[in-house]
Each structure stands twice: as structure tokens, then as C-alpha cells.
């Protein structure tokens, strides 16, 4: 997943903006990390480059 996805993605439930935390990056691709919704505070993980944005 590229960092620019922050402009595309939102919280699946409340549609709030997300904050990104990067744990592992490789050539501009985020491999591991997490998102936190600025509105409802839900967190979502990024595993093997794919964000898990299933509603919590």
C-alpha cells in the first residue's frame, strides 16, 4: 500500500479521516502498520501491504 492512500481511504463505519502509523516500509510501499480513525478512534491494521478495513 502506498502512503497516498491516506487521501483515498476513510473509516469504513463512520467515514472519518484516518491517521497512519508505519511500522515497516519498503521502497515507498507500506508493508506493516496501522490506521486510527480521527473521529471514532477505531484502529485498523495493515498486514503484508493490505489494509484490513473491515468494520470493527
Amino acid at each position: 500500500m502506498k502512503k497516498e492512500m491516506l487521501d483515498i481511504l476513510c473509516c469504513p463505519t463512520c467515514k472519518g479521516d484516518l491517521e497512519l502509523e508505519i511500522k515497516k516500509e519498503d521502497e515507498g510501499e507500506i508493508i506493516e502498520g496501522s490506521f486510527t480513525c480521527k473521529k471514532c478512534n477505531c484502529t485498523y491494521s495493515i498486514d503484508e501491504g493490505i489494509p484490513n478495513l473491515l468494520p470493527k
Binding site: M1, I8, L9, C10, P12, G49, I50, P51, L53
Partner: peptide, 12 residues
């Protein structure tokens, strides 16, 4: 790609 669902799409 995003692991999510059609009922709650995580796109702005």
C-alpha cells in the same frame, strides 16, 4: 487492494 466489504466501503 483493501480487505473490506461492500456494505461499509472504506473509500471517501
Amino acid at each position: 487492494l483493501m480487505h473490506s466489504e461492500a456494505v461499509n466501503i472504506p473509500i471517501k
